[in-house]
């Protein structure tokens, strides 16, 4: 899922300073699962903002909505009839959802209520860790299901490097060395021959080096 963290309330209040009539928009997708931008968070954030603004003597009217997804056009359309009745939208979806809404509703300022994080997994309630950087050329079949691009701080393809000490990475002793994990996993799978199949370098042409990417599935368009 796409993870995120709430922006500090002071930062949001500063963004909202010029406005007194807004929409707070959540998303039932990833941000609901990681408890940062779902229906419940819309309610809590809206109440918090109303209280803070009223206490400061500058009341704010808030319409609370939560869309099925903010990254699909059909779910944004129900907002069209009323969006121009509001001065701005504070979205607590991921950066993709916020941008898509901004594109669709060109006359309404879009404000981010969260900081979008990474593609990750839930370790336990309240803890998420990164697993994928969307490099566009997956090699997990050769690396025991552990991603060198994400789990290695340098994203190298010929690790471990000299910064790997007793299974931890030099960037942080709390971070496991991705390549040590890969080798340990290949040994336990009896697949060490895969280590030699890796390319000595990685082509990043499928990654972000060419700017924002686009997928066109000819069988679907």
């Amino acid at each position: 899922m796409i993870t995120g963290t709430p922006k500090p309330i002071e930062e949001i209040l500063e963004m909202l300073e010029p406005y007194n009539n807004i929409v707070v928009a959540g998303c039932f997708g990833c941000v609901t699962v990681c408890r940062v931008g779902g229906d419940k968070e819309v309610q809590v954030l809206s109440s918090t903002l109303r209280l803070a603004r009223e206490a400061a003597g500058k009341k704010i009217e808030i319409r609370e909505v939560c869309l099925e997804r903010q990254c699909d056009p059909e779910y944004l359309e129900p907002m069209r009839p009323y969006i121009e009745d509001y001065q701005a939208v504070l979205s607590i979806a991921c950066g993709a959802g916020i941008q898509f809404m901004a594109e669709k509703f060109g006359k309404t300022p879009l404000l981010p209520g969260i900081n979008t994080g990474f593609l990750g997994v839930t370790e336990r309630q309240g803890e998420w860790t990164e697993r994928c950087q969307g490099c566009g050329d997956c090699v997990l079949h050769l690396t025991g299901g552990i991603c060198p691009v994400t789990r290695c701080a340098k994203s190298i393809f010929h690790g471990p490097c000299g910064g790997s000490v007793e299974g931890t990475c030099e960037v942080d002793k709390e971070v496991k060395c991705g390549w040590q994990m890969i080798i340990d996993r290949l040994v336990s799978l009896d697949q060490m021959e895969n280590y030699g199949k890796l390319k000595p370098y990685k082509g990043w042409d499928a990654s972000r080096d060419g700017g924002p990417r686009r997928i066109i599935r000819e069988d679907m368009v």
Binding site: K40, Q43, V44, S47, T48, R50, L51
Partner: peptide, 11 residues
């Protein structure tokens, strides 16, 4: 009880 109910009481 969730956070929004508690905040609503203050509102």
């Amino acid at each position: 009880i969730d956070e929004s109910l508690l905040l609503k009481a203050f509102e």
